[in-house]
Amino acid sequence: MKKNLLLFFLFIFVNKICAQTQNDIKLFENIYSTYQEKVHYNNFKDSQNEIEQITGVFFSFYKKILSSQDANHCVFYPSCSEYTFQSIKKNGVIGIIDGIDRLSRCNRLSPENYKLYKNTNLFYDPVD
């Protein structure tokens, strides 16, 4: 009788261990998934007009061929090229001027004007 009781309690206890470890596993399951997934720049595919299409092709070429070989120098998030492309998509040709303005600000001389993006040391400056 005693043995049976002991086994019963042991069974309950072991179940408790398993359930708790399962919770811990779930909690820590993705802590090492910190790697970056590949970003595909095919922005010209969803273009609305010719200007967007042309800038989209240039942007994709720049991102895939040239920028991918460059070290990270841009101090902003999104980067200056992405910002210009987004701005052109939003404002049309005026977006190019917006992009030139952004390039002129691409330095660390006025950090007080920007918030930092997440855990990086990049300034957060999205297209409004």
Binding site: F13, K16, T21, D24, I25
Partner: peptide
């Protein structure tokens, strides 16, 4: 106890 020992080892 085994319960916390097990979890501690996992951590």
């Amino acid at each position: 106890d085994i319960y916390f020992e097990n979890r501690k080892n996992f951590y």
